[in-house]
Amino acid sequence: MTKAKNIKDIAKLANVSAATVSRVINQNGRYSKETEQRVKRIIKEHNYIPNMSAKGLRTNQTFVIGVIVPDITNNHFASLVLKLETGLFKHGYSCLICNTNESRELEQKHMKSLSAQNVSGIIVISGMQDYPELNDLPIVYVDRPSKDMRSNRAMIESDNERGGYLATEELIKAGCKQIAILKCLYNDPNQVLRYEGFKRALAAYGIAEDTPLSEDLSEVSFDAAYNKVKSLLDRKANFDSLMCTTDTLAAGAVIALRENGLEVPRDKLVTGFDDCQIAEVCGPGITSVHQDVDEMAKLATRLLLDMINKKELDQLYYKLPVSLTIRSSTTKL
C-alpha cells in the first residue's frame, strides 16, 4: 500500500475534499461524525503527520507551546509535564520545555525567550511571578496561584489547604500528638496553604502547635529534609510523627529516621504530599495527599487551546479537589 504523503492523498482515500481533511485535523467543525472517524482512521493507518511549518506560515502560529517547570527531576512536575506534552501532541502542538531550577531570574529569561520565539502559548508550572507584560500571549498558570487574570489567562491549582488538613488529621486519628512539620514557605503559596491546613487540623482536634517542631527548610529537596530530621534527632526533639509538605521531603525524612535506628511506622508516622511514585516505593509506602495530575493536564491543555483559538472561557480559575492515599507509613504497629 502506497503511503499518503499529503492532505490531497488523505482526501482522495477518504473520498472527501482536502478542505474537509484540513477541518478535521484542525477540529474546525462542519463535518459529520462519520467523516471525522473515516479521515482520522486513514490518517492513523498511513502514519500521516501534518506539515505544521507550512500551516504555521498560513496561520501565523508556530504550533509550539512553551512549558515552564521549576524542577524537571521532581516526580510530581515530571509527571505533569509528560501528560501535558502527550495531550498537546495529540492536537498537533510540540512542547518547548524550560527548567528554571526554582530561579526567578532564569524563569524571566525563559519567558522572554519563549515570547521572542513566537510560541502559540505558555503553560507556567509553579511559576515564581506573573507576566502581565505579555499581553497577547495565552498563558495558563498551573499549581501556584496567580493574580494575572484576564481573558487570555487561566489558573489551575489543587486544594492545598484541604490537603494539609487531611494529612495532619490522618496522623491525629492514628494517635499522634507531637506532630513535627517539614515545609518550605519561601516564595511558595502552596506550601503556605498546606501549612494553614496543618494548623487548622491541630486546632480542630484541640492540639497546640509545638513551635520547635515547625521546621522551615531553605529548599524542597531530599537532602534538606534528611538533614533537618537528623538535626531534630540530634537535639532529642520529642515528636511522634512528621507531616511533610511534599513527597520528596517525606522520603528524606524516612531515610534519616531509618539511618538513626528508627523505623516507619513502628517508631514514627509520616505523611507526604503529591502522591507521586516516590511515595509508593519509599520505605513501607508513604501516606500522601493525591493531586489529580491527569485532570490538571487535561484542563490546562483544553484551556490553552481554547484561548489560542479565540474561544471564550466559561471560567478562568479552577481549584481541583484532593484526596488522601493511605499507605503503611500511618498505620501504627
Rank of each mutant, 00 (worst) to 15 (best):
T2D: 14
K3L: 13
A4R: 05
K5D: 10
K8C: 15
D9N: 11
I10P: 01
I10C: 02
K12A: 15
L13A: 06
N15D: 14
V16I: 14
T20Q: 09
T20S: 09
V24G: 04
R30T: 14
R30Q: 15
K33G: 11
K33Q: 15
E34L: 12
E36V: 10
E36M: 14
V39C: 05
V39G: 04
R41L: 14
H46K: 11
A54I: 10
A54N: 10
G56A: 11
R58Y: 13
T59Q: 12
N60P: 10
N60Y: 06
V67T: 05
D71K: 01
F77H: 00
F77E: 00
A78I: 00
S79F: 00
T86F: 04
G87V: 02
K90N: 13
H91L: 07
Y93V: 08
S94E: 08
C95K: 00
C98M: 03
T100S: 02
N101E: 15
N101A: 08
N101R: 07
E105K: 12
L106P: 01
Q108R: 14
H110N: 08
H110P: 03
S113Q: 14
L114D: 01
Q117T: 09
V119G: 04
V119E: 04
S126E: 03
M128T: 12
Q129F: 12
Y131A: 02
P132D: 09
E133F: 10
V140Q: 04
P145T: 14
M149Y: 10
A154Y: 05
M155A: 11
I156P: 02
N160T: 11
G164I: 03
L166H: 06
T168E: 04
E169F: 07
L171I: 10
A174F: 06
A174N: 07
K177V: 10
Q178C: 11
Q178K: 15
L182G: 02
P189Y: 08
Y195C: 06
G197W: 03
F198W: 05
K199R: 15
A201M: 10
A203L: 13
Y205M: 12
I207Y: 06
L213Q: 11
S214Q: 14
E215H: 13
E215I: 14
E215T: 15
L217E: 01
E219Y: 10
S221E: 09
S221Y: 06
F222S: 01
A225Q: 02
Y226C: 01
K228F: 02
V229S: 02
V229K: 00
L232A: 09
D234C: 05
D234N: 10
D234E: 10
K236F: 13
N238T: 11
D240N: 11
M243P: 09
M243G: 09
T248M: 06
G252F: 01
G252P: 02
V254T: 01
V254A: 01
A256S: 00
E259R: 00
N260F: 00
N260H: 07
G261N: 07
L262F: 04
K268S: 04
L269C: 07
V270G: 06
C276D: 07
I278Q: 00
A279K: 00
E280H: 06
C282K: 03
G283H: 01
G285Y: 03
T287L: 04
V293D: 01
K298A: 13
L299D: 09
A300K: 03
D306Q: 15
K311Q: 15
D314I: 08
L316F: 11
L316V: 14
Y318E: 09
L320S: 09
S329A: 08
T330H: 05
K332W: 14
L333T: 12
